[in-house]
């Protein structure tokens, strides 16, 4: 990931107050689980954390069929059926965890959901650092019901964010401490998350 230029990864195709779904421009080019993405409204920038990614047929009723019986490798399938790249699509869902209005970054839900067709970008290292100055977003991640396990998501998110820091250990310890407080009564959950982020 380049730290200088902001990478565009998709376009919002479905939005609600708490999350949005974006379709990738290239098949299979979804951002990694737990990464911080943003999308822009007219005045508000929305921050989301990728919690799910899917690749499906563009027509909901049409399932892909197996095509590789006579092919040597799976790459060959795509080569012999170039239409596949157009008939399939990759999407990812992001949980809205904050927004920026003017110069101020708020780590809570924006007043309005994202607009359909707004571009979605992967946040730069600086943005990740800025956003993770406070761990308020962890509370949102823990308390939302998602198709993916919370433990997995929190751990993936922290692993992703820690890459922005030179001292990954210090960042993870600080985040761990925050989690230990948030999950005061849920020691097993804490243990499972810590097990997934330790180095």
């Amino acid at each position: 990931m380049s730290t200088d230029e902001v990478q565009r990864v998709g376009e919002v195709v479905e939005a609600s107050t708490t999350d949005f779904v974006a379709q990738c421009y290239e098949l299979y080019q979804t951002p990694p689980l737990g990464s911080l993405v943003k999308t822009m409204d007219l005045t508000v920038e929305l921050y989301g954390i990728v919690y799910n990614a899917t690749t499906t047929s563009i027509e909901p009723g049409r399932r892909p069929i197996a095509r590789g019986r006579d092919e040597a490798s799976d790459d060959e399938i795509y080569r012999s059926n170039p239409q596949l790249l157009k008939l399939l699509r990759s999407e990812f869902s992001a949980l809205v965890v904050g927004h920026r209005q003017g110069d101020i970054l708020y780590r809570y839900l924006p007043p309005k959901p994202a607009r359909i067709h707004s571009f979605v970008y992967l946040c730069s290292t600086e943005e990740v650092k800025e956003f993770s100055q406070s761990f308020d977003f962890l509370n949102m991640l823990i308390n939302t019901h998602l198709p993916v396990s919370t433990d997995e998501l929190v751990a993936a998110c922290l692993r992703q964010m820690s890459q922005a820091y030179e001292d990954r250990h210090a960042f993870l310890v600080a985040a761990g401490k925050e989690l230990a407080i948030l999950l005061g009564g849920e020691f097993n959950q804490l243990k499972s998350i810590l097990g997934r982020i330790r180095q």
Binding site: G176, L194, R198
Partner: peptide
């Protein structure tokens, strides 16, 4: 594990 010890 020093990480876990440090966190808790």
């Amino acid at each position: 594990n020093p990480f876990i010890a440090e966190v808790i």
